[in-house]
Amino acid sequence: MIARRTVVKKDLLGDEGYVHKVDAIGDPLQTIEAVVHSSALAKAVERISPRPEQPKGGRPPYPTEVMVRVLVVKRLHGLSDEQTEFQLLDRRSFRRFCGLEHSRNIPDRTTIWNFENRIGVDGVSALFAELDRQIRARGLEARAGQIVVATLVPAPKQHFTREEKAILDQDAMPAEWKPAKRRQKDVDARWTKKHGKSHHGYKFTVSVDRKHKFIRTWVPDTASVHDSQHLEAALDEWNTSAEIYADKGYVGAEREERLREQGYRPQIQRKAKQGKPLSACQERRNRRIAKVRARVEHVFAAITQWGGKRIRTIGQARATFAMSMMVLVYNMHRLAFLMA
């Protein structure tokens, strides 16, 4: 018996109807489009990395604003370069956000890769600075103190022999590694232990303002570096409150004294010593600080919704780029939420 294929009646206005339905439900990309001035972001990038000149007769490169939007789509949905190309071809909402709805050509995976290499970490820092300016221009200054926390960012696990590890520890490369193999080996990522479990990858320390929950500053590093090493570097000097909230990993009498001399009021949880438990007063203080610090978990929960903190890159430079894009897209998403 031959199965009959169901034929759906064609509707010449069906495509337009789909667009109206998407807008009625709410397109997250359009909420970002409404509050973020992408042209200003593109100008900030071009000051750092100007658009390259194309030889006569060749196809001109895509506008910087288009490529910045493509990177936002990629990070917001946790896509690889290959999947970003496919989704741009397949999803109209992506093309509309990127300004490619009526374009015959779509940036391919190589174009996306080359653009990331062109702007680098400095380009993302310029994007972040411009977005932060737009956030503050809307009256969303950093207020009520800042919450400093370090989080692990998993990276692809690497496998080395004992001999290779010994060579890498000396900042050298094994002689038998061919160039192709070197490109696939992440010699920057490190292992660390947290709560008895081993983790491989990187770490970035962020400062989140207590009032609006924007990430105001961030410091990237490898996973093996202790959380406390980047507290001072991650502080946001523009917060209107002097209070700093942090967990037990940052405790230290010398550090707290140094912060007070700089005009800060450290609110760092106390850590019990062996044979000397915390007093009832210290326990209450820890709980009070924990209630404030819980706000930072909302930040990482939002990032987890679009693919989590895992990265697919090789090396510290590209990991820093990926982590910086996480911060940038989160702040865009947060701004769209607050403005809505």
Score class of each variant (00 low, 15 high):
R4G: 05
V7M: 14
L12S: 10
L12A: 12
G14I: 09
D15Y: 13
D15M: 13
E16D: 08
G17H: 12
G17I: 10
V19L: 11
I25R: 15
L29G: 04
H37W: 01
S39W: 08
L41A: 01
P50I: 07
R51A: 09
R51Q: 14
E53Y: 06
Q54D: 04
G57L: 08
P60T: 13
Y62D: 00
V70D: 04
V73D: 02
K74D: 00
R75N: 14
R75L: 01
L76E: 04
L76C: 01
S80E: 05
S80G: 06
E82D: 09
T84Q: 10
E85K: 10
R96Y: 07
C98G: 01
E101F: 06
R104H: 11
R109G: 04
T111E: 03
W113Q: 15
R118H: 15
V121I: 14
D122A: 14
G123D: 04
S125F: 03
L127C: 07
L127M: 11
E130R: 06
Q134E: 08
G139W: 05
G139D: 03
L140S: 00
A142Q: 08
G145Y: 04
Q146W: 06
V148K: 01
V149A: 10
T151W: 02
H159F: 03
F160P: 10
R162M: 05
A166N: 07
D171F: 09
A172H: 13
P179I: 07
K181F: 06
D186Y: 12
V187K: 03
D188W: 07
W191Y: 12
G201E: 03
D209P: 07
H212T: 13
H212Y: 12
H212S: 10
W218M: 12
D221Y: 03
D221L: 00
V225S: 08
H230Q: 13
L235F: 00
A246R: 09
A246P: 07
K248N: 05
G249H: 09
V251A: 08
A253V: 13
R255S: 10
E256G: 02
E257F: 08
R260E: 11
R260S: 02
R265H: 09
Q269M: 12
R270K: 10
R270Q: 10
K276W: 02
K276M: 00
P277V: 03
E283D: 06
N286D: 13
I289Y: 12
V292G: 07
V292D: 11
R293A: 01
A294I: 10
A294W: 07
R295I: 02
R295T: 11
F300I: 01
A301F: 02
A301V: 06
A302D: 12
A302E: 15
G308M: 15
R310P: 02
R312C: 10
R312F: 11
R318N: 05
A322T: 12
S324P: 08
M326W: 09
V327D: 02
V329P: 01
M332L: 09
M332N: 11
L335D: 04
F337I: 11
M339C: 09
